[in-house]
């Protein structure tokens, strides 16, 4: 579903003044010369030539088994059997590929993903670990859900990108020039990058090694744990 259409609090039955579309907004004709501007904090449209089109982040199944997102500022194809994704920027035409190859130092066999709400989730990839590919208007983001303290905390990824991938950014969380150094509770070991036919390829192993804290939600009485005591993100009962 289109990002705009998902929103229950904005006009859905008013005639849109299409020439007034912008990246973050739509404008509607209220009649008698009145109009309404609906402005978002983030993008709701992507540029297709001279036209602004609605962003739709719902992955669609292809005949070849792949999942595809193409109503966005980027095109993305995901192989649900490997997590390997192919990303192509509409701005630059440059491409990148990435995906997971091991968890806890072992190769993984992936279950069928759950596709919903602009995200692709592989549940219980190994005991206590889910993987999630979250699609946003500005890109795709991997999340690692670690459900209990005894679950594996290390993930190995393969990354490949075109050498001239300067218009876009591939951001390695906590890595960059600091690869190999412990930072923000994550240790990263990055292999030496190899350049082949205009592509750069490397592997990264990330290990989450923050102190684990057990927490209790006073309102719901749910118990959980967190790897960051000040800002607990994960609360699984």
């Amino acid at each position: 579903m289109k990002l705009y259409d998902r929103h229950p609090g904005v006009p859905h039955d008013l005639p849109e003044i299409r020439p007034l579309r912008a990246m973050h907004s739509k404008t509607f004709d209220l009649g008698r010369g009145k109009r309404k501007l609906v402005q978002f904090v983030g993008p709701i449209h992507w540029r297709d030539g001279e036209r602004w089109e609605d962003i739709d982040l719902e992955p669609r199944h292809q005949d070849d088994g792949m999942l595809r997102v193409d109503q966005a500022p980027y095109k993305l194809i995901v192989d649900p059997t490997t997590t390997i994704l192919r990303h192509e920027s509409r701005l630059t035409g440059l491409r990148a590929r990435a995906g997971i190859i091991a968890i806890g130092g072992k190769a993984v066999t992936l279950p069928a993903p759950v596709v919903e709400d602009g995200r692709i989730r592989w549940l219980q990839v190994v005991d206590g670990v889910d993987l999630e590919l979250r699609l946003t208007p500005t890109g795709a983001q991997w999340l690692r859900h670690i459900h209990h303290a005894d679950a594996p905390h290390s993930f190995t990824w393969t990354v490949q990108r075109q050498e001239a991938f300067d218009g876009d950014r591939i951001v390695e969380q906590g890595a960059g020039e600091d690869a190999g150094r412990e930072k923000a509770g994550v240790t990263l070991r990055r292999s030496e990058a190899r350049a082949i036919n205009g592509w750069v390829k490397w592997e990264t192993e990330e290990t989450f090694d923050r102190r684990v804290s057990r927490i209790l939600d006073r309102k719901t009485r749910r118990r959980g744990w967190s790897d960051e005591v000040q800002y607990p993100v994960v609360l699984h009962g």
């Binding site: 990148a96 890109g139 591939i170």
Partner: peptide, 12 residues
């Protein structure tokens, strides 16, 4: 791991 971000705007 790599997060792929398009420089078209911010969700921040």
């Amino acid at each position: 791991m790599a997060d792929i971000i398009e420089p078209i705007g911010s969700t921040a």
